[in-house]
């Protein structure tokens, strides 16, 4: 409940500059995609967004360290971050939903099964299977083979699960006031995040060059890359966030009472980890 000291910030120029930067990036991206030019505009937008984020967070850090935030403000941040992660869950739910729908309904129907089997009349030769190596129409080339889940994907699973554990150890160490231990475990977590990204990069290289798994390789390639791709982007963002937190722990920004920035990044990292476990099961194993 309200305690009477809730901090309402003065005017700020970051929100409007941020929305303009986002607009510039989107226009640049659109021009790039449609007319194959406009990369500079896109980059200006990206740089603008990064700058605005940095300056905006700088203000927040100053306010936080200036003691302007009370317990109620802390709860606002908690609710905010919690619901933001929920929105991310729903974002991935859309892609998982697409994967389940295609595997459970669309492809069996194309293969002539069940109530909607009439769609089999379009491509009578088509045989339903997953992974879909033989897309219905010969204009689309399917993947040649699928990764074994028990090689790189398993390694990546172990890396991410371990990183969640190291992060928890870092956080617990922080709460016990053991800053050096905390920094070491946090640095280890960032390193594991980097390893994951590198291995995922290797896997993408393999996918394109040896497995025939590409964006154009029918619905398998599409669902594979949209799920692992957005997850990979989240790992990159999460690693950057944790790196920033590491710097902030180093600089002594946090104390035992006030370190929600640290906690929020932990929430985010665990969320990214859970998404990966879903991916490992439904994209790689099953």
């Amino acid at each position: 409940m309200s305690s009477g000291s809730y901090y309402v910030p003065e005017t700020s120029r970051w929100p409007i500059l941020g929305s303009l930067a986002l607009g510039v990036m989107m226009v640049g991206t659109g021009i790039k995609l449609v007319y194959d030019t406009g990369t500079p505009l896109m980059l200006v937008g990206v740089v603008g967004i990064v700058l605005v984020m940095g300056l905006w967070f700088r203000d927040v850090i100053h306010e936080s360290m200036g003691g302007l935030y009370d317990a109620q403000m802390d709860r606002s941040f908690r609710w905010g971050m919690g619901w933001f992660i929920f929105s991310e869950v729903m974002f991935f739910a859309a892609f998982f939903g697409a994967l389940f729908y295609v595997r459970t309904f669309a492809i069996p129907w194309l293969g002539g099964e069940g109530a909607k089997g009439v769609s089999a009349l379009l491509w009578p030769e088509f045989i339903a299977q997953w992974p879909l190596f033989n897309p219905p129409d010969s204009a689309v080339t399917g993947p040649e083979q699928m990764f074994s889940p028990w090689q790189l994907p398993l390694v990546n699973t172990l890396i991410l699960v371990t990183s969640s554990i190291t992060l928890t150890v870092a956080h617990e160490a922080f709460k016990l006031g053991e800053r050096v231990t905390c920094r070491n475990w946090l640095a280890g977590t960032v390193l594991l995040g980097c390893c994951f990204i590198v291995i995922q990069g290797v896997e993408y290289y393999e996918a394109y060059n040896h497995y025939g798994i590409t964006l154009e390789a029918g619905i398998f390639g599409a669902t594979f890359f949209i799920l692992t791709g957005f997850h990979g982007v989240h790992v990159i963002i999460g690693t950057l966030i944790l790196a920033c937190i590491l710097v902030r722990v180093w600089k002594g920004h946090f104390d035992n009472e006030h370190h929600f920035g640290f906690e929020a990044s932990c929430w985010y990292w665990h969320f990214v980890d859970v998404v990966w476990i879903g991916l490992f099961i439904f994209v790689y194993v099953l």
């Binding site: 729908y101 219905p136 949209i226």
Partner: peptide, 20 residues
């Protein structure tokens, strides 16, 4: 992605589905 990167989410020819 379907428009710009050649994916088949909503294209039955590649195993996707407009109904999706």
């Amino acid at each position: 992605m379907d428009i710009n990167f050649g994916t088949s989410f909503f294209d039955a020819a590649g195993g996707g589905d407009p109904v999706l």
